[in-house]
Design a protein around this nucleic acid. Structure first.
Length: 915
RNA sequence: GGGUGUUUAGCUCAGUUGGGAGAGCGUCGCCCUUACAAGGCGAAUGUCGGGGGUUCAAGUCCCUCAACACCCACCA
């Protein structure tokens, strides 16, 4: 076995072997356990958020698979409509073409082509993470089955009146030429101006002043509104004003929407280009005048001089023209929230178009109830508040998109504009007896990507067919996702699941935190602080990292700053830590309800942990070579029983932590047991046994070394699958285990009868003894190599018995020379206490008197403080009267123990002083 | 404006029903002790954000203030 752990040598090999042998496919028997992967975009590359999320899912999946459940982790990717279309369009752009040059069909072929060649990137990366997804049943949101499910859902919702088409004001992306949903609009604060414009009254009796951040929309104004109770403007209500730059006059209306405190208290109303104004327009039956084209250029409804101008050019021109006409009163700087498309970053325009909507209220109601009733639980529980907040204020969902890549809306129109919704043109002609002479045109729109994602928990399992997989795995067990898509995805899956399956899509929703950089900043390309999980696994040279971080920036001027920071933070680049270390880090940091700062120090520490495990295994293998490890013929030793007992306690904890999604606590418990109990103590205990003890005792210890390690590897496997498989292959045969893979071995279950509290206490005594000697040695500056003579005094019969049992271990681990029980007066010594028993190390030649006094003093002080606190508590009559009896008793015991120790320490100090 | 979270050692974070403040990293000593220097042994370190309250007892429960972070909605 190699002396040092090198992750690369083992990872690739084991993953391929697992996948080839079909270990990721559900075994078909046992309790079903299922997680649906949140389908990554087919265009995507794995980022830290994915890596974290997928690690958590793989942990649960491997845990349940080992527990014997019928375990499915459903694989798949999302067609990601706009994102994918943009990728392919960008590619076309390099050839100087647009999608319109190709036409719809050829373009879509091109996208499929792209998917076939480049679409598998992220699934390959998932494999590098060790994710045990059922690749054999991988799905894609646009494959035939899922497309069929999408049509079925659309048609059924339409037939029930839950999908409708209407001309509405929607969020329009003038760059992508499509409607987007409310959720896809990101508002951000930007600097703008508030223009104060004068509108003359039509009767020539004066004017009023409106304030606006968007002067160009004035060309679409159809009213001015004032607050009905605003005393300043009572006389204006019902009058007409001349709309400057146009030939039109518009009315002054009274509406509650107006805030008299803001601006001038008069608001221009543009119903076709503002959501609030639209509402006002509806209330007052105002006409809607659309002044924009799909590119947000001024259209034919605008005066001729402005037609064809871009909205921002038109703004400047209109302001200039108003100024020239003496109608510009004031320009004030003003901060405002600008709505931008989350994909194109273009300023979103409220725009009047025909779109398809899902009537959401009837679907939301049962979805709210499911969470209220606890049929679905959020973890952490708080997220349900966010969920309710949104669901109770939910708006109809605009599901049509004017792009090409996606599920085509299954609606056809005849020449008279009659709408038919159905499976296909042929079906419809059949169903409605439409002769071929009547032309049917399919709607050109496609569906919002999230429409198909909403069906993911059942469409992937074969719905609308009632397949075996669907029966077995729906509802799924848990959904693991980030808070950012609770609205986009989680809520919509719940609504669709309840509607079409009659049951919730998952029983629990585990919401994890965000991975941030070491300074707590969000990772983003523009900040140049992105870490690539694959670089952490494989390593990356500084120069490559710098190049990676500084190319393709939206703001290239940031490059020098990013380069400098990167060179400073990673002067040596990033070393290879391996997948297991990365996974363990994610697990260890995954406390619930908290974002994670990812710090290289942590992953390094856990890489070292893997190395520790590697070397411990090496020791065990070396120590058990050619040994007979059959059933023990004599009783196990106390140290053997101790580590076995500790192992049971660990196993119980791990199960508990999985149940409560506390992967951090599970990882810490495993780390602690492996390093601080198994390696630091048990392996050390085993050394004297293997050198000196009887053959039977040796065999028992060898057997225990192997068996505990074997169980430990299984416990660790969900966290660090590669190294545990590699090591298990070597250890398992010695432990009498057979099987092709650790992946399918049973997860260890605690056995209550092997928990032995008394033995744990006894070994604790041994540890205290050894630690006492080590402390004196270190603080007295005695060379670790020098064996020490020790005298024992004041011990009980029990202490003597324990010493008898464990003397060889203690002698070795504490490096003792000789040990004597003392009845007579002790010579001048340094002292440590184990309970009442004194461990004395004679001063002669070894120990500095002053140093020992100082050391005793320090311990005495600490004890005295603690004792004072406890005594005060006990002297309080209210405490003894009201606190539970066992708490009072515990305090009394502590005071007794501390007083006894204190007295011994003081006597010892006095003795040394007297010398 | 509405909502949610966070604040514990130098740093990153645990702290389960209120009952002796913990871990990792870092720091400081000593050590190449035959599994491991990616290591071993030992040590130091806290007005648990501030204030108030409930309680015999508060990091933990309640109120309040502050700082930071995030989400939703917005004033044209």
């Amino acid at each position: 076995m190699e002396k040092t752990y090198t992750p690369h040598a083992i990872e690739q090999h084991w993953y391929n072997a697992w996948e080839e042998k079909g270990y990721f496919t559900p075994k078909g028997t046992g309790t079903p356990y299922c997680i649906m992967i949140p389908p990554p975009n087919v265009t995507g590359t794995l980022h830290m958020g994915h890596a974290f999320q997928d690690t958590l899912m793989d942990l649960m999946i491997r845990y349940h698979r080992m527990n014997g459940d019928n375990t499915l982790w459903q694989a798949g990717t999302d067609h990601a409509g706009i994102a994918t279309q943009m990728v392919v369009e960008r590619q076309l752009a390099t050839e100087g073409k647009t999608r319109h040059d190709l036409g719809r069909e050829a373009f879509i072929d091109k996208v499929w082509d792209w998917k076939a060649h480049s679409g598998g990137h992220i699934t390959r990366q998932l494999r590098r993470m060790g994710a045990s997804l059922d690749w054999a049943h991988e799905r894609f949101t646009m494959d035939d089955g899922l497309s069929q499910a999408v049509r079925e859902v659309f048609i059924r919702l339409y037939d029930e009146g839950l999908i409708y088409r209407g001309k509405r004001l929607v969020n329009w992306d003038p760059v992508l030429h499509t409607a987007v949903s409310d959720l896809e609009v990101q508002s951000q604060e930007e600097n703008g101006s508030l223009w104060h414009l004068r509108y003359p009254l039509a009767d020539g009796s004066g004017h009023l002043v409106v304030a606006t951040t968007r002067p160009e929309t004035m060309l679409g104004d159809t009213a001015v509104a004032v607050h009905p109770k605003d005393e300043r403007y009572q006389h204006l209500i019902g009058k007409q004003v001349e709309l400057p730059l146009t030939e039109r006059t518009i009315p002054v209306v009274a509406d509650e929407h107006v805030d008299p405190e803001f601006g001038s208290g008069c608001v221009k109303i543009t119903p076709a280009h503002d959501f609030n104004d639209y509402e006002v327009g509806q209330r007052h039956k105002l006409p809607l005048i659309n002044i924009f084209t799909v590119d947000a250029k001024l259209n034919d409804n605008a005066p001729a001089t402005y037609q064809g101008m871009d909205r921002f050019a038109a703004r400047q021109q209109i302001v200039a023209d108003l100024k020239a006409a003496g109608l510009l009163v004031d320009i004030k700087p003003h901060k405002l929230m600008v709505p931008r498309g989350d994909r194109s970053h273009a300023v979103i325009e409220p725009f009047l178009t025909n779109q398809w909507f899902v009537k959401i209220a009837p679907l939301a109601e049962p979805a709210i109830k499911a969470v209220e009733d606890g049929q679905i639980k959020f973890i952490p529980d708080n997220w349900k508040k966010t969920y309710f907040e949104w669901m109770r204020n939910i708006q109809d969902w605009c599901i049509s998109r004017q792009i090409w890549w996606g599920h085509r809306i299954p609606a056809w129109y005849d020449d008279k504009g009659q709408t038919y919704v159905g499976e296909s043109e042929a079906h419809l002609r059949e169903k409605y007896q439409i002769p071929e002479t009547i032309n049917l045109e399919q709607d050109t729109d496609v569906l919002d990507t999230w429409f198909s994602s909403a069906l993911w928990p059942f469409s992937t399992l074969g719905w609308p067919e009632n397949t075996e997989r669907l029966k077995a795995f729906y509802p799924t067990s848990v959904l693991v996702t980030g808070f950012d898509i609770i609205f986009f995805w989680v809520a919509r899956m719940i609504m669709m699941g309840l509607k079409f399956m009659g049951d919730v899509p998952f029983r629990e929703i585990y919401i994890h935190g965000l991975i941030r950089d070491a300074d707590g900043q969000k990772m983003s390309k523009s900040k140049g602080n992105v870490l690539d999980p694959l670089d952490l696994i494989d390593s990356i040279e500084l120069e490559t990292l710098v190049t990676k971080r500084t190319t393709g920036l939206m703001q290239p001027e940031m490059a020098p700053k990013i380069e400098k920071a990167t060179r400073k933070q990673y002067p040596q680049g990033i070393p290879a830590f391996g997948t297991d270390a990365l996974r363990f880090t994610f697990a260890a940091l995954a406390s619930t309800g908290r974002d994670i700062r990812f710090d290289l120090g942590r992953i390094e520490g856990y890489r070292n942990f893997c190395n520790k495990l590697w070397n411990a295994t090496r020791y065990v293998l070396i120590s058990t070579q050619d040994s007979d490890l059959t059933e023990p013929k004599v009783a196990l030793s106390l140290t053997d029983r101790w580590i076995i007992s500790r192992l049971q306690q660990l196993e119980a904890q791990i199960h508990q932590h999985f149940k409560t999604y506390r992967f951090d606590l599970a990882a810490n418990a495993l780390y602690d047991f492996t390093w601080n109990e198994y390696c630091d103590w048990y392996l050390e205990f085993s050394k004297p046994v293997l050198q000196n003890a009887s053959e039977a005792a040796q065999r028992n210890t060898q057997r225990t070394l192997v068996r505990v390690l074997e169980a430990l590897l299984r416990l660790l496997h969900p966290f660090i699958p590669f190294i545990t498989e590699e090591l298990w292959q070597r250890v398992a045969p010695l432990a009498g285990k057979s099987g092709d893979t650790i992946m399918l071995q049973p997860y260890p279950q605690p056995q209550a009868d092997k928990i032995d509290v008394q033995t744990e206490q006894e070994i604790d005594w041994v540890k205290q003894f050894i630690l006492g000697v080590r402390r004196i040695r270190a603080e007295m500056d005695i060379a670790p190599s020098k064996p020490l003579p020790v005298l024992l005094q004041n011990g009980t019969a029990d202490d003597q018995q324990k010493w008898q049992t464990h003397n060889s271990i203690i002698t070795r681990l504490a490096r003792l020379d000789s040990v004597k029980w003392l009845n007579a007066e002790a010579p001048e010594s340094a002292m440590a206490l184990v309970g009442e028993m004194q461990i004395l190390i004679p001063l002669a030649g070894l120990i500095n008197k002053k140093a020992e006094l100082k050391r005793l003093n320090k311990e005495t002080e600490k004890l005295r403080k603690e004792l004072a606190k406890c005594t005060a508590k006990l002297e309080n009559p209210k405490f003894t009267a009201r606190a539970p009896a066992e708490i009072v008793e515990k305090e009394r015991q502590r005071v007794a123990d501390m007083s006894a120790s204190l007295q011994q320490l003081e006597t010892q100090a006095a003795r040394i002083r007297a010398i």
